[in-house]
């Protein structure tokens, strides 16, 4: 059917275009990259110009004959103005080049590439569909979006393009790890990697024990509210208040815990926090 349609496009809808003393027979539409022909009337030699925003052609032609343009000559979709200049005669007309209806490429805009676990509608994807010549395909086509989470849970939706574009939103799941976000149309697809990272620490807790003249402070393994281990390097702040003074140290998590030695002061109050999340408080009485 497609071949027939292309053939009809190429030859079936040709129409005469009035001119001052010659005529042009132009196709109304040409599929991008397809062969086409332009016939003129009159006698003698002339020059044929085809101009659009994507391509420009110039051919020496014999008036009264058909000029053939092989496949691949015009491939940028758009509107093309045609001018014929001959022996004291001129003609003009126009035709359109339309995108190939077979998608060959899609631009997949997926955001973000990293987000916290458990966010509703946290992941968005948008697709623009193009043919092999990078022409936007305006006819409606189905796009399948599929998000596979680290726990192999899959979310998917099929969205029909409008004016060449389609979009979707999806949730991040409760488990940290790497998601695969795929957009596909027929045989073509594009994949994005989405990192699901732990959220804020939850139930931050530390313990203290003496270490000579110091206090050794150590947190329990730090996890978010979904039970994911908060990544190493996350800053945990220990603050010790004593006798109107205070000591502070920002410690990065190492192997899931933060630990530090601070001066031992009698009746000191020690607190722990990470970002805006507060943990427990210890009163050091020794």
């Amino acid at each position: 059917m497609r071949a027939v349609a292309a053939f009809l496009l190429m030859i079936g809808v040709a129409a005469p275009v009035c001119a001052q003393s010659s005529e042009l027979m132009l196709p109304a539409k040409v599929e991008a990259g397809a062969a086409f022909s332009i016939q003129s009337t009159g006698t003698g030699k002339g020059t044929l110009y085809i101009a659009g925003l994507g391509q420009v052609l110039k051919r020496d032609v014999q008036l009264g004959e058909t000029t053939w343009f092989p496949a691949g000559t015009l491939y940028n979709a758009g509107h093309y103005a045609v001018f014929l200049a001959g022996n004291g005669s001129a003609a003009s007309g126009a035709f359109d080049v339309v995108p190939v209806s077979q998608p060959a490429d899609l631009s997949f805009l997926a955001r973000p590439s990293r987000l916290a676990v458990g966010l509703h509608d946290g992941i968005t994807g948008a697709v623009f569909l193009f043919d092999a010549y990078k022409n936007l395909i305006p006819v409606s086509m189905p796009i399948e979006f599929r998000l596979t989470s680290p726990s192999s849970e899959t979310q998917s939706s099929t969205v029909v393009t409008h004016n060449g574009a389609a979009w979707t939103v999806m949730d991040s799941t409760a488990k940290q790890g790497t998601d695969k976000f795929v957009a596909s149309s027929g045989a073509i697809s594009s994949t994005r990697i989405i990192g699901q990272v732990p959220g804020d620490p939850c139930g931050l807790k530390m313990s203290a024990k003496p270490a000579g003249r110091q206090i050794q402070l150590q947190t329990d393994p730090v996890r978010d509210c979904s039970g994911n281990a908060v990544p190493d390097g996350t800053i945990v702040t220990f603050t010790e208040a004593y006798n109107g003074a205070q000591s502070t140290v920002d410690v990065p998590l190492k192997r899931g815990i933060a630990q530090v030695e601070m001066p031992a002061h009698a009746d000191a109050t020690i607190t722990v926090a990470s970002g805006v999340i507060l943990g427990n408080q210890i009163r050091w009485e020794k």
Partner: peptide, 14 residues
């Protein structure tokens, strides 16, 4: 304007 992509990186218009 016929489309504004969710991440804000594209506006489509006719």
């Amino acid at each position: 304007i016929v489309f504004y992509s969710p991440e804000g990186l594209s506006i489509e218009l006719t």
